[in-house]
Structure formats: C-alpha cells, structure tokens
Amino acid sequence: MGKCVAIAVLALMLAGQQVQAAGFAIYDWSARGVAMGGATMAGKPDASVVASNPAAMTGLNGTQVMSGLSAVAPMVTVSIAGKESSDAESNVWMLPHAYAVKQLGERYWLGIGVFNRFGLGTEFDENWPGAGSVYYAAIKSVSLTPVLGMRLTDNWSIGLGAEANYFDFTQKKKVGGAYDVKVQGDDVGVGVNLSTWYAPTDWLSLGLMYRSSIDVHPRGEADSNLPSYLGGDKLNGDADGEITLPDSWSLGLCITPSDRLSLEFDATRTGWSSYKELDIRINGVNPSGVAVKDWKDAWRLGIGAEYALTPSWDLRAGYVYDETPVRTERADYMVPANDRQLFSTGLGWHDASWSVDLGYTYLLILDRKGAEVYVNGGVDSADFEDGDAHLLSMSVAYRF
C-alpha cells in the first residue's frame, strides 16, 4: 500500500496539474466524483472520501486502495477592446489521484490521499495583445493528506486530518514590448481538516467538512532577457511571494429513496476573500507594483445521482453551479473565467474486490463582458467568451 502511494506522489509531482477552475480550486478527485458533480461526501463511500469527507471512511470495510487519472482540455477566447481577439492555446492537463484506507478495528480507520486541490493553466501565444500582463501562468499544487476516522456511535463518525500542500507558481509575460520575463517559485504549506458523517436513518445521511487556510511563500528565480541598459538587472535574481490558499466549508446531504437510487446535494463555501493581492518580489522589490485582486468568497452548489442498473453496474449523473470569486472590476488574464456550469455523467462496474469507474464532465464558462483588467498602470476593457472544457476521468479500486 505504501509503495502505491509513493508512486502516485511521484506521478503527481511530474504531471502538469493545471486546469481552468472557478478561482483555481480543483474538485476532480475521482471518476465517480466527476460523474456525480463532486457530490460524494455524504452518500455511499469509496476510498476517495479521504479527499471529500474522511469521516465517511468508517463506512468502509477492510483495506481499500484507489488510483486514477483525469484529463482536462480547456478553452477560452479573450477580446481586448480595439484589438484582435485571442484564443487560449489548446492543451490537455492531467490530474492523477490515489488513496488508501485501512480499517484498524471497530472504531478507527486510517487513510492517506494524494490529489490536487488547487491548479491553474493559462497559456496564450507569447505575442498576443495581453502579453504585457501574462502569456503563460501555471499553478501546480499537490496535496498529501493523512487522515484518521473515528466511529463515535453506530451512526455518527468524525474525521481528523493534516494536509501538506506543495505549491509551485510560474508566470511568463512580456516587458518592453519584445522581451520576456519568467518568474518561478515553490513552497510547501501545512493545513488541517475536520469532518463528520451522520446517518440517522437508512435513507438519510449528512456530511460536513472544514478545511483550514494554508499559507505558502513561493521562493525561486526570476529570469529576463531585457538588456541591462533598459533595466534588465532588476528582472533577474531571487524571486519570492506569498499567498493564502483559502479555507472552505462543505456540507452534503444524501437521500436514498430506494435500494437502487441515491441523490446527494452538496454545497461548498470557499473563503477566496483571503486572496487580496499578488505581490511578486524580485531581489526584494516588486518592479511592477502590487497587483490588487480583492477576490470574494464563492459558492459551489452541486447535485449528484447514482442508480444501480444491475448488481454490478451503476449509472451516474451530476450538475454543478460554480460561482467565480473574480470581480468584473478586478478581472485577470491569468484567470480568464466567470461563473461555471458543469454537466456530468458516468458509469461504474464493481464485483466483490474490484471496481472501475468512468466519468465525463462538460464545463461551460459563462461569458463576461466589459471586464476591467489592470495592466502596467493602465486598464484594459476585455470580454471573456466561448469558455469551456471537457474532462474525462477513470479510477480503479481494489478491496481486500
């Protein structure tokens, strides 16, 4: 079990874990979760509850392991007033996940997960009209989460966990119209999570989870080909910054009207208001000045359904409304997004030991008109249009 998790950690570190997200949060933690719009924290558990609600591990028997991969292909068009519209580069980003859960007795369960909670991937042609702000931005974030589940009564459990979050930030933009500057830095931050799972009846169960904020201070290097006589020396050297990854509250309610059908409603409130500014310093000084973000707290609301077609096959579907934390008057080419709607479906097969799940999501980003983007002391008026993404996920699990 430990070897599987170690391999998964290595794969996550090497993969490009960037996607378009509301803000830059990620909820694609298993193929079953993808198929159900992420609404998996209160209902029938599998090993991926290490990520969605560790308290629900107490509904599992023996030892269970799961690993899988999601592929995300996003697209968006940006139109800057008076300039030609530009399409984002076509990329496919990979999001691996891996979990292991072991029952330690009648009251205790131990789990560990490696997955992505934050990520961002935005890439345009390096000469697009907004290149003075950014033409490439990437956040690679990997969470390693050990968790403990405890059964307090026959129908009430709690979960406690820690999170080590590896955070890597890269940004590329143009300076002086023709020269490049690249800033890259990374760090590891630590947070905690608390959760509970309560099933008062056979047809109703509830889940609640809190994730703390995590402070990270990426440190690395800045590199520019701007000549020294134009000030290039100020754009080369040590780089550092700081950001608070937001805390969040998640609540899930699952109703099982029959043995074959379950319906779950989930809501997550994320404290994006902690992201007030982006301050990237080079040799102790920010040459471009502090970028004010002033994001707002945001909701993610989802519903998922699972229906047992046969004793071995399950059909799933989901819908999510994901609110953006980015204000129209503080828009950002690095996060060219708006409120999102997600439409999901999927299929699962299982026997006594194995399960294989497939999930698909079409993500629709709502258009944003007249956004204000602050660039080098000026303001662009921009429209974000035709944003969408396709997400395909597969997970394989084994129980023993």
Score class of each variant (00 low, 15 high):
residue 322 D to A: 02
residue 213 S to C: 12
residue 336 P to W: 04
residue 257 P to Y: 12
residue 399 R to G: 02
residue 338 N to K: 00
residue 341 Q to L: 01
residue 395 S to K: 12
residue 244 T to N: 14
residue 182 K to T: 14
residue 207 G to T: 05
residue 191 G to P: 05
residue 284 G to E: 10
residue 341 Q to D: 09
residue 325 P to Q: 02
residue 219 R to H: 06
residue 276 K to D: 13
residue 186 D to T: 00
residue 39 A to Y: 05
residue 255 I to M: 12
residue 97 H to D: 10
residue 213 S to V: 08
residue 82 G to L: 00
residue 239 A to P: 05
residue 274 S to V: 07
residue 150 M to L: 15
residue 251 L to N: 06
residue 212 S to E: 07
residue 154 D to F: 11
residue 37 G to S: 00
residue 190 V to G: 00
residue 231 G to E: 10
residue 348 G to K: 02
residue 388 D to L: 05
residue 368 R to E: 08
residue 304 G to I: 01
residue 165 N to L: 13
residue 218 P to R: 09
residue 187 D to K: 01
residue 342 L to N: 10
residue 118 F to S: 05
residue 254 C to V: 02
residue 232 G to C: 01
residue 397 A to G: 03
residue 4 C to K: 01
residue 124 F to Q: 00
residue 268 T to H: 03
residue 265 F to M: 15
residue 392 L to F: 03
residue 60 L to D: 04
residue 93 W to A: 13
residue 290 V to F: 10
residue 382 A to N: 13
residue 347 L to M: 03
residue 187 D to H: 10
residue 350 H to F: 00
residue 57 M to W: 13
residue 91 N to P: 06
residue 323 E to I: 09
residue 250 S to P: 02
residue 282 I to N: 08
residue 185 G to Y: 03
residue 114 V to M: 03
residue 246 P to D: 06
residue 400 F to W: 13
residue 339 D to T: 09
residue 76 V to N: 09
residue 203 W to Y: 14
residue 264 E to M: 13
residue 341 Q to S: 05
residue 140 K to F: 08
residue 128 W to A: 10
